Amino acid sequence: EAHAAIDTFTKYLDIDEDFATVLVEEGFSTLEELAYVPMKELLEIEGLDEPTVEALRERAKNALATIAQ
């Protein structure tokens, strides 16, 4: 499951495998979680700032909209 989540994140969020791995290690496994989890939870991840989190959430929401079509 972790590998599938990493693949999904790299494909749809335009991030590298290392960043995707950090997200999975922090407990995220779906685009929905990244799109809708409280921003505070993402900001608790070391190295993430508000602009990065906002961009990540926007990419996740856009990916979900694209997949739904």
Rank of each mutant, 00 (worst) to 15 (best):
I45F: 04
L13Q: 00
L42C: 04
A5S: 11
Y12E: 05
R57V: 11
E46S: 14
T52I: 11
D18R: 14
E32Y: 07
D16V: 05
L34C: 02
P38G: 08
K61W: 02
A2M: 15
D16M: 07
R57H: 06
T21R: 15
E33W: 02
V53E: 01
A55G: 10
V53A: 15
F9K: 01
V22S: 09
T8V: 13
E41Q: 12
A60S: 05
A20C: 02
E32D: 08
A35W: 04
L56N: 00
V22T: 12
F9A: 02
T10C: 08
Y12G: 02
E26T: 14
L56E: 00
E33K: 09
L23A: 00
T21P: 00
K61I: 13
E17A: 12
L23P: 00
K40A: 13
P51K: 14
L13A: 00
L43F: 06
M39S: 10
E54F: 01
A63L: 04
A4S: 13
E32M: 09
M39H: 08
R57W: 02
A35S: 07
F19K: 05
R59D: 04
L13D: 01
N62S: 14
G47Y: 06
L56W: 02
E41T: 13
D49A: 05
L43R: 06
D18V: 13
E25P: 00
Y36K: 13
E46C: 08
A65G: 09
E32F: 07
A55I: 11
V24L: 10
I45Y: 04
K11G: 04
L48M: 14
E50V: 15
V22L: 15
F9V: 02
A35Q: 05
E46K: 14
V22G: 04
E44A: 15
E58I: 07
A55P: 02
L42I: 08
E26I: 14
A4R: 12
A55Y: 05
L13C: 02
T66L: 14
A68Q: 13
L56M: 07
Y36V: 11
F9S: 01
I45E: 01
T10P: 02
G27A: 02
A55F: 06
L13R: 00
L64E: 02
K40H: 14
P51M: 12
E41M: 06
A4Y: 08
D7T: 07
A20S: 04
E46D: 12
D18Q: 12
E33H: 09
K40Q: 14
N62E: 13
A35N: 03
F28P: 01
A4N: 12
A60T: 03
T30G: 04
L13V: 02
R57P: 04
L64Q: 03
